[in-house]
Design a protein around this nucleic acid. Structure first.
Lengths: 233, 233
DNA sequence: AAGTGGTCTAGACCACTGA
DNA sequence: CAGTGGTCTAGACCACTTG
């Protein structure tokens, strides 16, 4: 009844979560109002509010004004991923990072690329194909398109010395980022670049970014066999 | 100077974010103290605090007591993924969901599985192999191990009628979840089950869950060719 | 129209950590 | 030890949504 310790919102969150876990509040159930929970826990309503906001963000409960708070019926697994700059990814594994520019051209992109960037017509864009190495071995091969309208400065950058990945991430923050992951079989060209066999299963990471409504870049990163994406610990 | 409107913490967050984007605060720079920002924006310090907490969570800035708030030098792409129950995934695409139990046995798992679940010795576990269908076509083949020590009730469940995926997600909430994604070439067995060609590139989703410190399940979901994982919009 | 979550404020105190 | 972020509280008002 009387709490001797001061409760933090994280404590409240964990206690309420525990009640969901042990079935006190079952899926679909309505939880007490924040104010009542605050009384139960002997804390301020705003503390409960902060706790419930976090549970809502984690997909544990759903909250609606007037409708109250309910335990989600169909829980989803919600995970957070970090995709670092490739150089950092290599170096954080204790390997030596390397980089090779393969090709740099200016051309209108294929319709699929334009669609991904949500731009209507065909306009010249910068295409960069480059290889990231880990301890001298191919690690990630990236095939990138950069909007010259949104990022004209990139014409001046020596992309043989510095990867577009690094330059863009450091100099062109984005406000929106779409990611998708899928698997493909390596074609002959890709297999040659990644020094693997044709047909090998490769994980592909596609990333497209915008600033405001303007497209920055769309990149298809083909990873060497064995590459894994892990959730943030 | 004088704000006529009331600022929400999200507004403050977006304004500070804009300053990072336009270079007012460059990577590595130290931002003003919360209290000074509050004065600039004409709001309470707690409003700024909430805003900065969110920017910190998004990986835009780093905050340290006494050290202040700094713009992260090496931004990471941080994304949130939702992995729904397979049935919901199929049905939300407007397809008809189907399910087939392929095999159900009790045996000690391979060392790799035990290691993933962080259990020391070999103990009997429930192994379930099952196929999820979308409009009658193979969609996801799951190879799952369930801890009979943590989840003894699952012995009583008819896993031919209800998928372990669904039963566990609905009845066994977890407190910790590890996910990993990678690509493999389908072996003959898998290709047969997924009705594809041997060697086809498949995306694999491995998910392992615990409640408290106790292992619940580890599942390897082999997805049919073409499967994509998208970030939450 | 009324109930419930969302947010703000001002002030207070705590907790961590860098100088 | 002093500076800065982290959190709590109590009260107030707003915004959404359901009955």
């Amino acid at each position: 009844m009387t709490e001797t310790v001061r409760l933090s919102w994280k404590t409240v969150r964990d206690r309420v979560h525990a009640r969901v876990l042990d079935g006190t509040y079952a899926p679909g159930d309505r939880l007490p109002r924040d104010e009542d929970l605050a009384e139960q826990f002997g804390c301020a309503r705003s503390t409960v509010q902060r706790a419930m906001q976090d549970l809502s963000l984690s997909g544990i409960v759903e909250r609606r004004r007037k409708g109250g708070t309910r335990v989600r019926r169909d829980p989803v697994t919600r995970a957070t991923l970090d995709i670092p700059i490739t150089r950092n990814e290599v170096e954080s594994r204790g390997a030596v990072y390397g980089y090779q520019l393969i090709e740099q051209t200016t051309a209108p992109p294929a319709p699929a690329i334009a669609a991904r960037l949500e731009i209507p017509g065909a306009e010249d864009m910068l295409r960069v194909r480059a290889l990231h190495l880990s301890d001298g071995r191919p690690f990630v091969f990236e095939d990138r398109w950069v909007s010259l309208r949104t990022v004209p400065e990139i014409r001046e950058i020596d992309l043989a010395a510095q990867s577009a990945n690094e330059w863009l991430v450091r100099n062109k923050p984005y406000t929106r980022c779409d990611l998708r992951f899928y698997a493909i079989n390596a074609d002959a060209d890709t297999a040659g670049i990644l020094e693997t066999d044709e047909g090998a299963a490769l994980m592909v990471i596609e990333r497209t970014t915008w600033i405001g409504g303007d497209p920055i870049t769309s990149v298809k990163a083909l990873t060497a066999p064995g590459y894994q994406i892990l959730t943030r610990s």
